[in-house]
């Protein structure tokens, strides 16, 4: 069985942890640092990191537009924390120049759960991953303030006041989480991504079952209300 070739955006952040999780799920990983690295990928991960730095580097490297183009064309992606922020249509509490890709029709609030002293772990119920709660690791985490009609909210957690906040979304083949699945030994979120990634030969991975069981938004239906 051929293994899908999945890129990990490697400008800054916890690139290694994502690569390890993907490889545990049966993918081959490649570091993406320039537009040429986007060629021939079956999927891509945008890791956690510092979103101001990552968005700045994306622009500086000339990667923002080619990456957005690939994602709009249906390249499956998993974007965690800072990755989610750089894909958002609008960023609250960020820098004015921060929404660099605008691929996900969501409004995201940076550091919404608070500073590092408020960072936390808690189990998160994610229906598409099955009945067992997912170990959520939230580090200066954002939440989704609002989402567009094409966006499915896959999970919520309570904020400090007990209000439910959206922390995982899917739009077409792009999954975004405000938590860090790569910092856990639970690979179900990465498997969900790989379920959408097909190897160049067209062979899907063994991890595909998790994705296939999930309610899908057709990849073609990614019309983004992005102005």
């Amino acid at each position: 069985m051929s293994r899908p070739r999945v890129g990990v955006l490697a400008l800054q952040g916890d690139v290694r942890e994502h690569a390890q999780a993907l490889e545990r799920c049966g993918a081959r990983t490649v570091a993406v640092r320039s537009p040429a690295d986007l060629r021939g990928l079956a999927g891509i991960v945008l890791p956690g990191g510092e979103s101001t730095t990552v968005s700045m580097l994306l622009v500086r490297e000339g990667l923002a537009q080619p990456l957005a183009g690939e994602l709009r064309a249906g390249l499956p992606a998993l974007a965690t924390c800072a990755g989610l922020i750089v894909l958002a249509r609008q960023v609250l509490d960020g820098r004015p120049d921060q929404h660099v890709c605008g691929v996900l029709d969501v409004v995201v609030r940076r550091n919404a759960f608070g500073r590092q002293v408020a960072s936390f772990e808690r189990p998160v119920d994610i229906a598409v991953l099955g009945p067992v709660a997912f170990p959520g690791v939230f580090i200066r985490a954002p939440w989704l303030e609002s989402v567009g009609p094409q966006v499915e909210v896959l999970a919520h957690v309570a904020d400090a006041d007990g209000h439910p906040r959206a922390v995982m979304v899917r739009q077409g083949a792009v999954i975004g989480t405000s938590f860090h699945p790569e910092l856990t030994a639970d690979d179900r979120v990465h498997a969900l991504l790989l379920g959408r990634c097909t190897a160049p030969s067209g062979t899907s991975t063994g991890a595909g079952a998790a994705g296939a069981a999930a309610p899908q938004v057709p990849a073609a239906a990614v019309p983004l209300g992005v102005g």
């Binding site: 916890d14 942890e17 960072s119 860090h180």
Partner: peptide
């Protein structure tokens, strides 16, 4: 959560 914060600063 403490060690993970540092992981986000890598690179």
């Amino acid at each position: 959560v403490k060690r993970g914060m540092a992981e986000m600063l890598k690179g």
